[in-house]
C-alpha cells in the first residue's frame, strides 16, 4: 500500500554528529548522560569528559553519536532538558576542529620482522605519530589527529602486527574567536 508520507519510502540516512555539552560538575552527571543514551537506545561512538572551568565547577563533555537527522535532533533536545546541563552545541553544524589521541602498540615477530619494523616506523612518520616506547620487537606510537586519521593508522598497523590500542575519544572545539 502506498504510504501517505512521501519520505517514509526513502531509506533513512544515518550520519555522525559531535555534540559539546557544558554541565555542572556534580556527582552522577556522567551517569545521567550515559544513562539517557542507553535508556533511549541512542548510539555513543565516543564520549570524553573533564572539568574545564574549576571555579565554576563546569565540565565539558564531547559526545560523538550517529543516527538519522531526526534522532540526532531528538538527542540534542534530550541532552538540553537534563537539569544540570547548561548548554548543548552541535559542533557538526559549525566549522570545528576535532582531535583524538591514540596509543598504538605494535610488535613484530616471525620471518618479516625487519621489514615490518621499518614499515611501521615509515608509516608513523607519514602520519606524524611519535614513538613513545620501543623494544627490540615492539613500538608504542602516540598519534593525535582527526578520528579518521587515527582509524586509518590503526588499520595499517593491523597488517603489520597490532597488539593493542588505547584511544581517548574525540575532543572538539569550534573554530574562530567565539565562546561556545
Amino acid at each position: 500500500m502506498k504510504s501517505h508520507y512521501a519520505d517514509q519510502t526513502e531509506k533513512p540516512v544515518t550520519e555522525r554528529r559531535t555534540f559539546c555539552v557544558l554541565v555542572d560538575n556534580e556527582p552522577g552527571v556522567l551517569a545521567r548522560i550515559a544513562g539517557m543514551f542507553s535508556g533511549r537506545g541512542y548510539n555513543i561512538e565516543s564520549l570524553t569528559v573533564s572539568e574545564t572551568e574549576h571555579e565554576k565547577h563546569l565540565s565539558r563533555i564531547t559526545i560523538v553519536t550517529s543516527g538519522t537527522p531526526s534522532v540526532l535532533n531528538q538527542i540534542e533536545a534530550q541532552l538540553d532538558r537534563l537539569v544540570p546541563v547548561h548548554k548543548v552545541v552541535n559542533l557538526s553544524a559549525k566549522a570545528s576542529i576535532e582531535r583524538e589521541l591514540a596509543l598504538v602498540k605494535v610488535a613484530q615477530f616471525g620471518e618479516h620482522r625487519g621489514e615490518h619494523r621499518m614499515e611501521a616506523l615509515r608509516l608513523a612518520t607519514a602520519f606524524g605519530a611519535k614513538t613513545v616506547d620501543a623494544t627490540l620487537n615492539s613500538f608504542i606510537f602516540e598519534l593525535a589527529g582527526p578520528a579518521d586519521d587515527v582509524e586509518r593508522f590503526i588499520n595499517l598497523m593491523t597488517a603489520i602486527g597490532l597488539v593493542e590500542v588505547s584511544r581517548t575519544g574525540a575532543a572538539a572545539i569550534a573554530r574562530g574567536a567565539e565562546e561556545m
Binding site: S3, H4, Y5, S70, Q74, A77, Q78, D80, R81
Partner: peptide, 22 residues
C-alpha cells in the same frame, strides 16, 4: 504513524522542546 492525519499542517505548542518533532 505513517497514516496519522496525512493531510494536515501541524502546529505544536509544548513547554518541553524534546516533545516537538519526537
Amino acid at each position: 504513524l505513517d497514516a496519522f492525519s496525512p493531510g494536515s499542517k501541524k502546529i505544536h505548542v509544548d513547554i518541553d522542546p524534546s516533545s516537538i518533532n519526537k
